[in-house]
């Protein structure tokens, strides 16, 4: 018997041919369940949870306001601010903002405008009710407080 030089050449290649399929599945999931982001939110948003949620039908008639502490606290301070579109506005600018947003809509749709307030859990009622007062003055009475669905485990 000679010396057998048996070099066990067993290369176990894990077949990665299924990898693109997995990635495509993930991709389709994200394509279906998400929307393209329109504005970058610059305030902290810890949205409260609730049960009695209703959805808005016509997305085009909804305008968003974001209220909370600014994310970049060293630049903007710790006080909660109101963000509309991409910049911070003051309570006195709200009526102007509402009229500008109304002008973007058709004549007969203007009175159906709904303002969606995305308010942080820790934001104080004082600021939010100031916003509400300005909205009343601007005749944008339909209001939606964005909340997440409460999940009782």
């Amino acid at each position: 018997m000679g010396k057998f030089k048996k070099k066990a050449k067993t290369k176990q290649d894990i077949p990665t041919s299924a990898l693109p399929d997995i990635i495509f599945m993930l991709l389709f999931f994200f394509m279906v369940t998400t929307v393209l982001r329109e504005t970058t939110i610059n305030v902290l948003q810890r949205i409260p949870e609730a049960n009695e949620l209703t959805k808005l039908r016509k997305k085009s008639l909804v305008k968003h306001l974001y209220i909370g502490e600014p994310k970049k606290a060293e630049l903007w301070g710790k006080e909660p601010k109101i963000q509309a579109n991409d910049n911070f506005i003051d309570t006195k600018d709200i009526i102007l903002w509402v009229n500008r947003e109304k002008a973007k809509l058709k004549e007969n749709e203007r009175e159906q405008i709904t303002v969606d307030l995305k308010v942080d859990s820790d934001a104080k009622r004082g600021l939010v009710s100031d916003v509400e007062l300005q909205l009343r003055k601007a005749n944008a009475r339909k209001l939606l407080y964005t909340t997440r669905q409460r999940v009782d485990l």
Partner: peptide, 13 residues
């Protein structure tokens, strides 16, 4: 993209 959240508590002022 973000996961849209357009549900909430409706109120008429």
């Amino acid at each position: 993209t973000t996961i849209a959240n357009d549900k909430g508590l409706f109120l008429l002022l």
